[in-house]
């Protein structure tokens, strides 16, 4: 974790006099507001250009998707209504370092809202013994995939500019990833399914997941547009 955080910090530190010295434009400092569409959802950001090669971005992105019509899935002889819920995005803080006029490296942190959930409810009444129970009497099961840590380092490579050097508008496309430690599965239940809140198999799966070095990496593809205020 610490090693991974070094990268954006290193980039921040490297964006110092030697690089600034290359910049000969009179218009160095600037401020822009922007919007974006990405695998983290729609968002907005405030971008500050410190000089021609370094900009700082703070923004918020969010994508929430729930499904009105649940999927129906049969387990044994029982049909379950399965409703997925997707929530990604979060607050981002990045430093962009321009290698070329239209190519930049970016790094920073994301306070992620990442939350993938599935809700399972029996579709029809169920018989236990000879007594028929309504779905609400049986209970429901909620399975979530959550990040091990909410505050995650982010790194990416971008094309275009997050803040224009000389004009009002700028367009950028960015590919990157943030690393959330590992994925953690969380399962809770109610009614007859409440025992899943302490499901030993979930604990074992989480132990295995925590050992995967690639687990918890979330890829990001982002298209951004900004308007330079000054």
């Amino acid at each position: 974790m610490n090693k991974i955080l070094i990268l954006p910090v290193l980039m921040l530190l490297l964006g110092t006099p030697a690089i600034q010295a290359q910049d000969s434009s009179p218009k160095k400092i600037g401020l822009a507001i922007g919007g974006s569409a990405s695998t983290n959802g729609l968002g907005f950001s405030v971008i500050a250009a410190l000089n021609r090669s370094i900009a700082v971005r703070v923004g918020y992105e969010s994508l929430t998707q729930s499904f009105a019509e649940p999927f129906v899935y049969g387990i044994e002889d029982i049909d379950f209504n399965i409703t997925p819920n997707i929530k990604v995005g979060g607050i981002t803080a990045n430093v962009d370092f321009y290698l070329l006029k239209g190519l930049y490296l970016t790094g920073g942190v994301v306070q992620t809202n990442f939350d993938l959930g599935v809700n399972l409810i029996p579709k029809d009444p169920m018989k236990i013994g000879e007594i028929e129970y309504q779905p609400e009497d049986i209970g429901e099961l909620n399975v979530k995939i959550l990040p091990e840590r909410r505050l995650s380092p982010y790194a990416g490579l971008g094309f275009g500019r997050t803040i224009s050097r000389d004009k009002k508008l700028a367009l950028n496309f960015e590919l990157g990833a943030y690393h959330m430690g590992s994925y953690v599965i969380d399962m809770t239940g109610t009614g007859l399914l409440q025992g899943n809140s302490d499901n030993a198999s979930v604990k074992r799966i989480n132990e295995v997941l925590s050992d995967f070095s690639w687990s918890g990496i979330y890829p990001v593809a982002k298209l951004g547009l900004s308007f330079r205020i000054f």
């Binding site: 013994g129 007859l192 025992g195 074992r204």
Partner: peptide
């Protein structure tokens, strides 16, 4: 580990009424 995970897959816990 993935192979082990597949064999030690998720189990479902049910209570009785």
């Amino acid at each position: 580990k993935l192979t082990n995970l597949a064999t030690d897959s998720l189990s479902l816990v049910l209570g009785t009424p």
